[in-house]
Each structure stands twice: as C-alpha cells, then as structure tokens.
C-alpha cells in the first residue's frame, strides 16, 4: 500500500512504476502481435478466386436465358473428348442479376457484350454491362455437347450461396458472416448455387433451378448460408451442373456442412 504512487499529470513517473509500465507495454504488444498473427493465420474460408475489377473485356458467345442467363463461348481448337465450349454465368453490376425474362429474346442467339471477368476454379462469370449486351451480326454455330445431359436423381448436402460473391467478387464470400450479402444478391437476381464439399476431390457447384427449370431466387432466401439437403434431378450442360428441385422440398440440416 505504501509503494510508489502514479499521478498522470506529473511530468515523470516514479522509476519503479516506469519499469512496470515498460514491462506492461512489452507484454501487451507481444499479446497483440500474437493475436494478429494467430487470428490472421487461422482464417479458414478464404479460397482462390478472382474478380478482375477495373478490367473490362469484350465477349462474344451464345446466350442461354434459362434458368439463369449464361453465355456459351466455343473453345477454339477443342476436339474429341474435351468439352468444346466454356460457360460463363452472366450477372449485372452490384447485387443484381440479369433478368431471364428480358434476356429471353436473345436466347440461343449470338451476342456481344462487355464486362468484367470473375472466376474460381473452373467456374467463370461475367459482370456484364447490361446496355452492352447486343445481338451480334455474326451467328455462331452451337458447339457440340450443348444439349443437357441427365445425371439422374441425386441428393446433396451443402450450402446455398450467391455465385457472384463466392466466385470472386468477395473473398471470403460464403457462410454466416456473408449471409446478409448473399441474401441481398440472390434476391437481386444473382444465380444461387449449392456448394457441396466432397471428402475427396474438388467441391461441386450446382446451379439451383426449379423442377421446371425456372429461377428459384426468392424461394431459397431463408436457407442461404445454412447447411441444407437438396434432392433433385441433376443435369449437365458442358461443365455446368444444374440441380432441379422444388425449393419447398429443401431440408435444413441441424449440423454444419463438412
């Protein structure tokens, strides 16, 4: 009780207190440094994805309007077993998708557009400038393998997320912290995707559509960023996987997805 006494407005602290302050500051800086390293290193949801923000490119391809607008771009020189085209999801700037209804008039036609590339693994997307989407003067031949191939009825556990953020606009762009953004994006027309993490192999991305191949944006909002189980018809269109199911049959899981 009778030790040195600290008074902040005095010019100098007692030497014993000064030594204590130095030890305190060093300890606090070490703790802060330790937390900065640990908390940064232990982040788990940051993947490899890119949004080429500020880099606008021109694209030409065949517009497919349903279930969500996407662009089919033939790959030059593709032959044999390789898929002869790339698929680009199409979205508008910010938290908006392209309206499948307004794109219906361009369905199956060759279009030119300008936009910014977004990609994660093999998943590719273009944030298109809506006014730049025009029917092209030259018509492309539909590449081989463009027709949908049924993969049968299957069940998947995963997380519903908005494809735009997850594919690269935000990283990380998934899970609970990102849920509000994902809900706003999906309600704004961004294609909802089911992320399925497999024990072995790459994760699967399944574009969610209704049983009759319509968008399901408004029906899935309450299940975004939570573990869900979906059973439905799976179709492959090139590299694009589409999971068709009535959203009322989606089942919320109690446990977290693996």
């Amino acid at each position: 009780m009778n030790g040195p006494f600290y008074i902040g407005w005095q010019d100098r602290a007692d030497p014993e207190i000064k030594r204590f302050i130095i030890r305190c500051v060093l300890l606090l800086f070490s703790i802060g440094l330790g937390f900065a390293i640990l908390l940064a290193r232990m982040q788990r949801t940051i993947g490899v994805s890119v949004f080429e923000w500020g880099t606008e490119k021109k694209f030409s391809g065949i517009m497919k309007a349903m279930p969500y607008p996407h662009l089919i771009v033939p790959r030059p020189g593709a032959s044999g077993a390789t898929i002869g085209f790339s698929t680009y999801y199409l979205v508008a700037p910010f938290k908006h998708g392209l309206d499948p209804g307004s794109m219906a008039s361009l369905d199956g036609r060759t279009v030119d557009l300008r936009g910014t590339l977004i990609y994660r693994g093999n998943e590719t997307m273009i944030e298109a400038i809506p006014d730049s989407i025009k029917a092209s003067l030259r018509q492309m031949e539909p590449p081989a393998g463009l027709e949908n191939v049924s993969l049968g009825r299957q069940t998947f556990d995963g997380e519903i997320l908005d494809s735009k953020c997850f594919f690269g606009v935000m990283n990380p762009g998934q899970s609970v912290p990102h849920r509000d953004c994902a809900i706003l994006c999906i309600s704004g027309g961004i294609p909802p995707v089911l992320l399925v993490r497999q024990k072995h192999g790459r994760p699967l991305y399944l574009l969610l559509a209704s049983a009759d191949n319509k968008p399901v944006n408004q029906q899935v909002l309450d299940m975004v960023a939570e573990p869900v189980e979906i059973r439905g018809e799976v179709e492959r269109q090139g590299e694009l996987l589409i999971l068709r199911a009535d959203p009322s049959t989606y089942r919320r899981l109690n446990s977290r997805s693996p």
Binding site: G32, L33, A36, I37, L39, A40, R41, I46, M170
Partner: peptide, 20 residues
C-alpha cells in the same frame, strides 16, 4: 502494429483475400 501484422500475414497466406 496489429493492423499491419494482421494484413501482412493474411496477404501472405491468403493472397486472394479481397481488401474490403
């Protein structure tokens, strides 16, 4: 110090993280 170290470690291990 905290902000710089957090940013440097994150950028080192997760170079694709978005700035915001």
């Amino acid at each position: 110090l905290y902000l710089v170290v957090f940013a440097v470690v994150t950028e080192h291990y997760f170079p694709y993280v978005t700035e915001e």
